[in-house]
Design a binder for these strands. Structure first.
Length: 135
DNA sequence: GCCAACGTTGGC
DNA sequence: GCCAACGTTGGC
């Protein structure tokens, strides 16, 4: 079981939208590095949903409900997607500011590669984010 | 195959 | 609104 972080622009698709929809296909990713990560996504994995733009904060946890599969709506077979459902909202959002302030996160892609929209989350980072959301 | 020009993302 | 950090495209 692996952990992921998924970025989304909330005015486009937010964690609330996922809660309302109850289930969604995570599509629209074109970046090759992000697609390489998506290919490793498995049913049962958990994902942090992170809002970009004005919010810049982790807001909720989602559960992956399918393995990665080729996007049936994409012409390019390299494009892969997966389905997920909402699991829980974080008690409090964890902001990018908080993440940048903590040295534990310094080497993480979220801080180092701002454009990357899908990335793995090491267990230590997963735990710390959950901790920060409860403080 | 290289690289300049351009486009995109996301933070500031 | 700007810019850094990429990725992509197209000419050579």
């Amino acid at each position: 079981m692996a952990y992921w972080l998924l970025k989304t622009e909330p005015s486009d698709f937010s964690f609330d939208d996922l809660v309302k929809a109850k289930r969604a296909v995570w599509d629209g990713v074109a970046n090759n590095t992000a697609l390489i990560h998506i290919r490793r996504v498995k049913k049962g994995d958990l994902a942090i949903i992170y809002h970009t733009g004005d919010e810049k904060a982790a807001v909720g946890i989602a559960e992956v409900v399918t393995d990665a599969y080729p996007d049936p709506r994409a012409a390019d077979s390299k494009v892969v997607v997966f389905d997920l459902k909402p699991k829980q909202r974080l008690a409090k959002p964890v902001t990018l500011k908080q993440i940048k302030a903590d040295p534990l996160f310094a080497e993480w892609e979220l801080v180092r590669i701002s454009r990357l929209s899908v990335m793995p989350v090491p267990t230590a980072i997963w735990k710390r984010i959950n901790q920060l959301s409860e403080d």
